[in-house]
Structure formats: C-alpha cells, structure tokens
Design a protein around this nucleic acid. Structure first.
Lengths: 343, 343
DNA sequence: CTGAAAGCGCTTACAG
DNA sequence: CTGAAAGCGCTTACAG
C-alpha cells in the first residue's frame, strides 16, 4: 500500500504553490491555461485524489446527508429510502440513516448526532413530516426535504406520489373501457394518501358526468377481508356495478375472490383496478391485476435530487409529484381471470 | 443560530489546556478524577459536541463505510442493505451506497471514490462476491465483509442465510408431521443458495433413513409455471408423494394450483413448504403457505455488526450463518387450503 | 496570474 | 498528572 499523493506533492512536482495547485484542480480563481494544464497533468500522473475528509473539514461541507425515517424497514419506506441512498451514492454523497421510531426523545438524540456530523441536509421520510418539522429547531439550519405520501405545507420542500392523479387515471381508464357503473371501494377515512385517491377519482367521475356507483365511495379497511365483504355488499345491493377502483391490491383481490365465488367474471362482468403493485417482482407471463405502481424508488430519487438542489441553493419550496405508473393487467382488459392466475 | 462550542472553549472555561480537555473528554490518558469531572461538567454546560469532521480528519477514521451492491434495488438486496444501513445509523456510521451494476469499470471508479473518502470499511452485498474480491486490490486495504446468500472462501468475512439449515429443517418438519414420501421440487442447478437447500434436505432425509420421493430432487426454474408442471409430473408418475419442499414460494404456489385443479387437497393429501416468505407484510388472519423467511434484514444487520468488529480489530474470518425463520402455515398444518386463501 | 501564510478543530507524541 | 506545539490536507483571504 503506497502512500497516496497529496496536493502538496502535486504542487511540488508541478513546480507551483499549493495555492495555485488547489485553484487549478478546483477550477476556481485565475490560473493561466498552461499552468492549469500542467497541474492537472501532474495530478493525473501521480493519481492524485483529493482527500474529502480534509476538504470537508475546511469547507464545512460533509458530503453527508441524514435520512430520518419514521420506520425505515417498513414496506413503503424501504424502496423510497433505497431510491434516495442509491441516487446519493451515485452523486458521491454518504447518508446516515436514522429510524426515529416514533419517540421525540430518540429523535432529538439523533438530531444532536447529525449536527455533530455537520450534515449538509436532511431527508425526512414518512407520513407524518409535521412532527419531525416541529422538532427541527432553528439552530439546526440545514436544508430539509420531505419524502412522503401525504400533503404538507406549501412552504416545505416535498416530494410525494400523485395519489390524486392516480385516482383520476383509474376512473378515466375504466370510463375509457366503456364502463358506466363504476364504484370505489376504499380504505380508512382520514388517510391522506387514500383520501387523495378518492378526490381524484371523484373529480374524474364528475367531469365525465357520471355518478359514482353504490352512491359513493365505500369505506372500510386495508385488508383483503374488507374487499371480500365489500364484494358481497355490492352483489347484495342489486345495484348495477361494472367496474371498481379499489384502494389497494389486497382489497382488489378480496373483491375478485367474492366475485369468482359467485360466478361473476372479472373483467367481463366487473373490471377491477387495485393500487400498490404488490405483486411486482413476481415473475409471470402477464399481470393479473390492473393496478398502480407508486414508483416509490423514483419518489426517493427525486427527493434526493431535490435535496441536493436545495443544498446547492437552486430550488424553491413546494410539492413535486411523482406520477404512479398504471399497470395494465387482466382484471381490466381480460381474458377472464382465474384464481390460479392471481396466486 | 448560536455558534457551537469548540473543545478550546471547553478547555478555556474549565481552566485546563486543550490537551487535557481532549483527554478528559475521550477518556484516554492520565487525567485526575477531579479535572476530568470538571471538564466533563463544563462540556455539558456548554452543550459541547465534538466536531466529527475534525476528528475524522486528524484520526483518518471517517465513520463512513461503503456498501457495494450488485443490484441495490433488487428484491433480495434491498432488505439486506436496509438492515445494514439502519444498524450502522444507530451506531452513528454513515454509508455510501454504490450499485456496481455488473461492470468492472464502474466498480473501479467507485472504489477510487471510496478511497478518496477514506472509508473505514466495505460491505459487499450480492451473490458473486468473488468478482468484487478480485477487484479489491492490495492498495485499498480496508476491512471487507461480504453479505451474500452463497458460500465463499473461509478466508473471507462472510454473513449469509443458512440455506443448508433451512433445507434440513424443512425435511425434519415434514417428517415430524408423519409424512413418508417427501419430494423436493427445486429450481436451477448451480445456484449456490438453492444447492445448499438441496444438500440440507438430502442430509436430513438420509439421517432419517428415508429416500427422497420421485427418486431425488426435481430441477427446473424459479417460476410458478415450473411448479405447475412439476405438479403434473408428480401426479402423472403415479408414485406416492405426500409432502413437497419447494425451492421458493412461486414454485410452491404453482404446485398448489395444479393439485387443487386435480382435486388433491393441501395439506391433507400433500403438504407443501415453500421458501422466501414472499407474502410477508400482506395482512391476513393466518399464513396460507408454510415457508421460510430468510431474514434478510437480520443478515444485513449482522453483516454490519461484523464489519464494525473487523474495523475494531475484534473478529476473525469465517462464515456467520443466519438461520431462516420457519413460518408455519396452512399448507402443512391445515385446514385445507382454498385458492382464495393464497390470493 | 501567483504565492506565503493563516486557519478549520481536533489528536498525540514529546517534554516536564 | 498536565501543557505547549506540531500536524492532519486542504481552502481562501490577503498581498504582490
């Protein structure tokens, strides 16, 4: 292991001062073209790599950002965080990942640590950024970007999936297929992400001049069980329904199970769209379920990208939306789905 | 934003030299008990936090480790990497995540970067650590730990799931249930992880003095389609089979689909065990499929823990195995599984 | 356009 | 047990 060349070495060999070497290598300040060329050539010959630790120390830029998650190992946080750290890695930025685990005490402890590391910025991942926002006191003034599925004050820097747009797209897809009695089986009330999908769906139905089947969205839970029950309720009602937008894939599959049991064909009789693309990564010839992929990895990437922009001073507050990707599957475009297909 | 106290501030206020302050605060060298107490008290009063950038600069320890993945966003790498970064974050270690994407050129570029950052260690995530091993040249001498599902030379530091143990446990579970004609439907040949499961399974069957049904493991692919075909092949053979260990959940589900179509009940007639716990995180009252959870997050944690030990000089080479967790589901312990249950 | 020098905030021989 | 001083490898006023 040979000792690495320092900038002084480069300067000495190139016959210039350390000051000039620094300027030439960093491309700042006035240096004659020939001097610059000579220094750069020398640096390459010596395989000079600037010591980032020294640079960080003197500039105060650590090239490290914090990633603060409510629950880093959660099903939704994970791809988002990975998208972010992967992007940051490509940009040669390190991350320190901290799981707040809900308690403000831990959060405060973590913020102290991050301050000691002089992080360049902070990415907050989770659905309740307001809480984190509160704790981010004045004396910890680094750029903060929120990656979240819920809406937040317009004064923050936020990146989130466009749940509203997805709801709208779902309605439009079903309408475009010629369906006329479209229901919406959603989950819990007061989940911002779910609410936004309801909104978008409702808006699209209204502008198509089409009432929502079953008299409006049916609220329940996130479970497959609720989808099965909702299916029964729809069939019992006797009301015409030929398409359903479900709040997630579990509900969609529950609906399908009930319909199949009753001999109702999907999509022939009733088309179904889910949400989450839960079966992503399972290799199969075709997608059984029409659904939306929230592209959480992309959300993470965009959030990281934006954080670097804020750090660089070239960004203004507001929400950036990432469009969920519609996955066209057999539950809307056929052929008729069999249970084995969805396994 | 008030200026943070430096160690000099603490020294001055406490009436000692910078040297003494440093020693008192770090607990090294000889300092009288009272002096130490005074310095520590002063530091707390001034809310002193040592500047890690300065410390890193002088000690050369960056408190940053590299995470080099073959495919960071892959289904298996993701939980592993998150487990590692999460553990490291708790220990106040930052990570720079790099996705090698297979090409040695990119890999070399990344290693140069990591050297410039003076990382303390490197975690290599992926199934082909040997390749990375090759590129990790002599002059980049930092501790390296491999987190992988395949075996590697005993001279390396490796953390991996105990695939062999899982194969063994699968056979033992089925034998314990009283099954006597146990087959093994596996995937591709020459996948080290899958091979190890075959080995463990075979060993357990041998020590129970029980031949493998169907004359030995059936090799195919990772797809559900293969499971369906294998099911047909088993039924066509006319040979007695009352239990199957499948190499993954896709295959297990394919087997189930075929059996159900033919009126064969699971687990009553044939019990099935899968692998991967692919349905983890899907909320349901009971687990439909008996399977193994590879605990990849734990593998990542252990690998990170071990890396810190190697960096600290308190570890010796060898493989650490993480035991996959058996998930007991209805496909081995009933009641009879219906397609809707597995959806 | 170029350079001598100060300084970032610590750790650590070295001397007492 | 304690302290004065050097040094880690850069950046950046300041002066020429």
């Amino acid at each position: 292991m040979v000792k690495r060349a320092s900038m002084s070495d480069v300067a000495r060999v190139a016959g210039v001062s350390l000051t000039t070497a620094s300027r030439a290598l960093n491309g700042v300040g006035r240096v004659s073209a020939e001097t610059r060329a000579r220094v750069i050539e020398t640096a390459e010959r010596l395989q000079f790599q600037p010591d980032m630790l020294a640079r960080s120390f003197v500039t105060g830029r650590s090239f490290i950002v914090g990633v603060l998650a409510e629950s880093a190992l959660g099903r939704f946080s994970m791809p988002l965080i990975m998208g972010a750290t992967n992007y940051l890695g490509r940009e040669n930025i390190a991350t320190v990942t901290l799981d707040a685990q809900g308690t403000p005490r831990i959060l405060n402890e973590y913020l102290k640590r991050l301050r000691a590391r002089r992080i360049d910025g902070l990415l907050v991942v989770g659905d309740d950024p307001n809480r984190a926002s509160l704790v981010l006191s004045e004396d910890f003034a680094v750029p903060v970007v929120f990656a979240s599925s819920s809406a937040t004050p317009e004064t923050d820097y936020v990146v989130a999936p466009d749940n509203r747009g997805a709801g709208q797209a779902a309605a439009e897809h079903l309408i475009g297929l010629g369906r006329r009695h479209i229901a919406h089986v959603t989950a819990a009330v007061h989940d911002p992400a779910v609410d936004a999908r309801v909104e978008g769906f409702t808006a699209a139905m209204e502008s198509a001049g089409m009432p929502i089947a079953m008299g409006g969205p049916l609220y329940g839970s996130y479970l497959q069980r609720w989808g099965m029950d909702a299916g029964e309720r729809i069939l019992d009602s006797g009301k015409p329904v030929d398409a359903i937008f479900a709040a997630n894939d579990e509900i969609a599959i529950g609906l399908f199970a009930t319909f199949h049991r009753h001999g109702i064909r999907v999509p022939d009789d009733i088309a179904i769209i889910g949400y989450d693309n839960r079966l992503a990564g399972v290799m199969r010839p075709d997608d059984p379920l029409s659904t939306f992929d929230p592209e959480l990895t992309t959300v993470g990437e965009r959030a990281a990208e934006r954080l670097l922009d804020v750090i660089g001073g070239t960004n203004t507050p507001g929400i950036t939306y990432v469009q969920p990707r519609f996955v066209e599957g057999r539950s809307t475009t056929g052929p008729t789905l069999e249970p084995y297909d969805v396994l």
